[in-house]
Amino acid sequence: MNISGNTIFIPGATSGIGLALAVRLHARGNTVIVGGRREDRLTAIAGEHPGIHTVRIDTTDADSIHAASRAVLAEHPALNVLITMAGVMRAEDWTTPTGFLSTAEETVETNILGPIRLSAAFVEHLRAQPEATIMTVSSGLAFAPLRATPSYNASKAAIHMLSESLRLQLEGSSVSVLELEPPAVRTPLMPGHEENESAMPLNEFIDEVMELIESRPNATEIQVERVKFLRYGEARGDYDRVVATLNATDPHGR
């Protein structure tokens, strides 16, 4: 993915990593469209960041994705990058008889079906562009589980394998598949997470991501240094230590 000169749609970018990435990409000379459910947040973003476009989209709703994709492509026919940023992270307790299933279902709906539906809505358009990118967003927890968030871990593992598989299917086309793998980052993804001292500061994370995109335009995975502890535990042969360390020090980590 080139660092500039793109037209980029980022659904789920009204806060946290998505918004920070949208602002940085816009500053690097890209046309950026931010998508989200809340009209008040979209209005605020448009006012605070002149030049960034907005569109309402609910990535848990197939009809909303379809309508938003038509609107985005009608207004921005040069669109060549889709970043499937939308996601939720919720704690679950599977040792209780009730109370976790609805959370698990919401997580799967948002974190797996959302990116699948978004990619399906845009893939044919992207294949018609000279150069295009689908950027998925998994997590370090795709590779090492956090005890508190079983369905989130599983959803991000699914996104990793979806990314690997789409890359194989789209090989030889104009569309590259790039997977962003965040570690724990100080965002409002979970309550209290913005104050989590063990998580990576958001600006520091975005600085490193932008540097990696610029220096490695043909990369398939964007991994800041902090996520490699989680990402490569199994390959290094210390997976059990990684899982123990993760769950001992970061009960609300990503």
Rank of each mutant, 00 (worst) to 15 (best):
G12C: 08
P201K: 00
T98F: 09
G99M: 01
R226T: 10
V34P: 01
S215H: 06
N30T: 03
T31K: 07
R216K: 13
P150T: 05
Y232N: 09
D250N: 15
F9Q: 00
L118G: 08
Y239T: 03
I45H: 08
A235N: 08
S102L: 09
G51A: 07
E208R: 06
S15F: 09
E225Q: 14
D61I: 04
P97D: 03
T14H: 08
S173L: 10
S139P: 11
E109W: 07
M190H: 07
T103C: 01
E211A: 15
V175W: 09
A142T: 09
I52C: 10
A67C: 09
I57E: 03
L42N: 05
T96G: 08
A86Y: 08
L73V: 14
S119H: 09
L141M: 11
F229W: 10
T187C: 02
L168W: 15
E48Q: 15
M135H: 06
D238L: 08
G172R: 02
N80H: 06
L246N: 05
R41T: 12
V224W: 01
R241T: 15
I52S: 11
L101D: 10
T103A: 12
G233I: 09
L246I: 13
P150G: 06
E171Y: 14
N203V: 10
G29A: 03
R127E: 14
P201A: 00
V224Y: 02
A46N: 04
G192A: 04
F143H: 13
R241H: 14
M85N: 15
R167N: 10
T249C: 03
P183I: 01
A74G: 13
S155W: 04
P183G: 00
L146P: 07
E195R: 01
T98H: 07
H193K: 00
T103D: 12
Y152W: 04
L168C: 14
L170T: 14
A62R: 03
R37D: 01
S215Q: 12
R167I: 14
G172T: 11
T54I: 15
H76N: 12
R231W: 10
E214K: 08
G237T: 09
D238M: 07
N2V: 10
E106S: 11
L246D: 05
S215M: 04
